[in-house]
Design a protein around this nucleic acid. Sequence first.
DNA 1: ACTAATCATTGGTCCTGCGTCAATCATCTT
DNA 2: AAGATGATTGACGCAGGACCAATGATTAGT
Lengths: 187, 187
Amino acid sequence: MTSPPVVDQADQADQVEQVEQPVHRCGALLEHLARRLRLRSESVLAPLGLRPRHLVALTVLRARGGSTQQALASTLEMDGTNVVGLLNDLEAEKLIERRRSPEDRRRHIVELTEAGAERLARAECALAAVEDEVLGALDHDQRETLFSLLQQVATRGVEAACVEADTGSVEAACMAEAAAHDEVPPC
Amino acid sequence: MTSPPVVDQADQADQVEQVEQPVHRCGALLEHLARRLRLRSESVLAPLGLRPRHLVALTVLRARGGSTQQALASTLEMDGTNVVGLLNDLEAEKLIERRRSPEDRRRHIVELTEAGAERLARAECALAAVEDEVLGALDHDQRETLFSLLQQVATRGVEAACVEADTGSVEAACMAEAAAHDEVPPC
DNA sequence: ACTAATCATTGGTCCTGCGTCAATCATCTT
DNA sequence: AAGATGATTGACGCAGGACCAATGATTAGT
């Protein structure tokens, strides 16, 4: 019943076995919250010509200052072909640039442009209002707590993604570092 | 019940810029995280005959012991007709019960059944591995904190939905926020 | 050098979630 | 009695995203 099949990756740092201690599952709540945020984000982002996933992609790109398309796909956990379309959107508006990698000219290195960074900043500014609305039940300290918790998770998640993809661990370090320090958007 | 003071835009703007410490934005973080969680959850939940949104609904129902269908719809921010389908799924498997409200017999009061609570618990147990994988960076206490924060936000949706329905123009709040920050050049 | 594998790209297909509309029935309100 | 409201059903459509196949460019294996 509550016997946790410890199957799967045993190689990972063994987690604290969820014993009889009532560990609540926040998956559903997280999903719910993300959904509510997304619903509002879409309308706010629309005038900027962006959609939520564009924002996620831009955020990742800013965080690591350029990335292989593959690495981006594995971080976003999206199919490669869909990433192409996503990047096409962004490139069409000059928000990103694709350069061929000097080492391996098959690869594309994706980078944020000036316009991209600016657009991202503006979007974040607009989203701040949305977050204020959705997270209205939390006071300032609570939001900071939430943020730091999410940040911990996200940081670790990136490691995991990169490990899975088994690409350069350099990227992992880069992303982890970028996510770790307070990255205050310019607004 | 923190009973947040009814915020009008001016007050809110004042409060937002309260400190020099910037309010961090977790939108993209949340979105990304939720997506990763959902991708894994779906495969885990499938054998149980549940999908993520079912879990969300069950969780909300458990959080408050029973709810009007309308309240549920507004909390989930889903269209009423879609909620009907969702509840049909759940009722078909006896996970919830619909009772007519004694005061207004048009209304349905939705409640978790024994089987529903059990199934939910089992699903959460099954999701343990998934969450451990994604939330591995958090210890027990941190997860509890995260849970309580999320739940606070989630359950607030009841009142918020009504209030926002009347007062809420997201654009207004957005513009107020933007105006407050517009001193910064790039934004 | 020739072949096989890899990356990005395009185009196409399919499924699913979800919003919406229209109609119906039961019930409440006036 | 007449209209408004809640729940329900069925149909339609759109968009996100996964998946597959083929192509061009490039690199790697032998």
